[in-house]
Design a protein around this nucleic acid. Structure first.
Length: 200
DNA sequence: AGCATTATTAATCTCACCCA
DNA sequence: TGGGTGAGATTAATAATGCT
């Protein structure tokens, strides 16, 4: 109807302004809605999975979790090579999980069988790092090996300012090591056969 | 075997460079 | 101007060794 009709001076500008301002308002509202949706999603995660998470206190559940953690992160049993059961990581949560799950899963757990070793770079203070990891793990100083400095890092600055090195935690109990590897294998086989028979 | 220490390597990151 | 890339550096991990 209005095609071809010239708008008076300034109208086009005013309409454009109106469009952008209302669009900006809409965007603010949309962003807020997205934020709320996202928050609700995370609240639902917590509500739905909290009972599951609490099962970690069950010895059996803890043992599966530990077996899976070790399958991915821990040393493998190989008497011809390394004879120790250990797990190393720079993430304190992984270290704490390892120790906590050992405590949960084995009534025979003996804290005196723990050993710790800090691995770090040449320009770091090993004693400082040892204190950090002692605080994280609660393992006393007498159970720490002497820190291991990577010789390749001499003369090269550390880039990550909050890098606390790697803590390697040993648990001096071969039987526990073997049991966890056996369980990991059993879990693996169960998962495989289930997955095959239900999808195959 | 058990424990302590040291060596090596796998995995990941960084950064310069290229190109669309 | 930002993604892809690959060599070399760095970080994170496991293997190996030595001693009792």
């Amino acid at each position: 109807m209005c095609r071809g009709v010239d708008l008076p001076d300034g109208y086009a500008k005013r309409i454009a302004l109106l469009n952008t301002t209302s669009l900006n308002k809409a965007r603010v509202i949309a962003a807020e809605m997205n934020r709320i949706k996202r928050e609700e999603m995370f609240q639902a995660f917590v509500a739905n999975n909290m009972p599951l998470a609490k099962m970690i206190h069950k010895r059996e559940i803890g043992k599966i979790a530990l077996a899976m953690l070790c399958l991915g992160e821990a040393s493998k049993y190989n008497p011809a090579k390394s004879r120790s059961f250990s797990l190393g990581n720079s993430d304190p949560r992984i270290i704490c999980l390892f120790l906590d799950l050992l405590r949960i899963s084995f009534t025979s757990f003996n804290a005196e069988k723990i050993r710790c070793g800090v691995q770090c770079r040449a320009d770091q203070d090993p004693e400082e790092l040892k204190k950090y990891w002692m605080r994280i793990t609660g393992v006393p100083e007498r159970l720490f090996y002497k820190p291991l400095v990577d010789p390749r890092t001499i003369g090269k600055p550390t880039r990550k300012p909050d890098y606390k090195g790697v803590l390697r935690v040993y648990y001096m109990n071969t039987k526990v090591h073997l049991e966890l590897e056996s369980l990991a294998d059993l879990v693996y086989n169960q998962a495989r056969t289930r997955a095959r028979s239900s999808s195959g």
